[in-house]
Structures are given as structure tokens and as C-alpha cells.
């Protein structure tokens, strides 16, 4: 987590510097949405991480529903080897 945060901080600083440079050189490339995308990405990460247990549960249920039998069949020969 710490390293992730460090990467994020470095990235933000870099982006900040980059857009300042662009303003200075007169290149009018609008970079102001980058932070918004970064923010929304983080939000999506929060949602996904929170939904993970529920998704695992769902996958588990689906797996046992549809592939439960096949899985056992596959597992058996593997066990023989």
C-alpha cells in the first residue's frame, strides 16, 4: 500500500510539473482532466475492492452450480498423476 501511495504521489507531482511546463512553453494542451480520471480510477478501485468478497462468493456459487461436477472430473485424473 505504501509503495502504491508513493507511486501515486510521484505521478501527481509529475503531472503537476508537466502541465506547468506546458503552460510556460505556450503549448495549449489541456491536462486538467488527468486528475479527475485519477480520482475516478481510485473511486472505481474502492468499489471493486469492496465488491471483491461478494464477487468471489458469487463466482464460487456459479462455479459450484455449473462447473462443480466437471471440476471434480478434471481434478481426479490430476490426482492420479
Amino acid at each position: 500500500m505504501k509503495s502504491k501511495l508513493t507511486i501515486l504521489m510521484v505521478l501527481t507531482t509529475q503531472l503537476g510539473l508537466a502541465s506547468n511546463l506546458m503552460a510556460a512553453t505556450g503549448v495549449r494542451e489541456d491536462t486538467s482532466m488527468v486528475l479527475v480520471y485519477l480520482f475516478l480510477g481510485m473511486c472505481a478501485m474502492i468499489v471493486i475492492m469492496q465488491l471483491m468478497p461478494a464477487m468471489f462468493l458469487l463466482f464460487g456459487m456459479l462455479k459450484s452450480l455449473f462447473f462443480g461436477h466437471k471440476g471434480q472430473v478434471k481434478a481426479n485424473p490430476a490426482a492420479k498423476h
Partner: peptide, 18 residues
């Protein structure tokens, strides 16, 4: 802190909506 005033404004607006 943020690159430009506009980016701070846009981020503030989007965060508010979230």
C-alpha cells in the same frame, strides 16, 4: 497543490458529484 486552478476546480466538482 494541483497543477492548475482549472484542474482543482474540475476535481472539486467531480469529487462533489461522487
Amino acid at each position: 497543490l494541483f497543477a492548475s486552478y482549472k484542474s482543482a476546480i474540475l476535481l472539486h466538482n467531480v469529487a462533489g458529484l461522487v
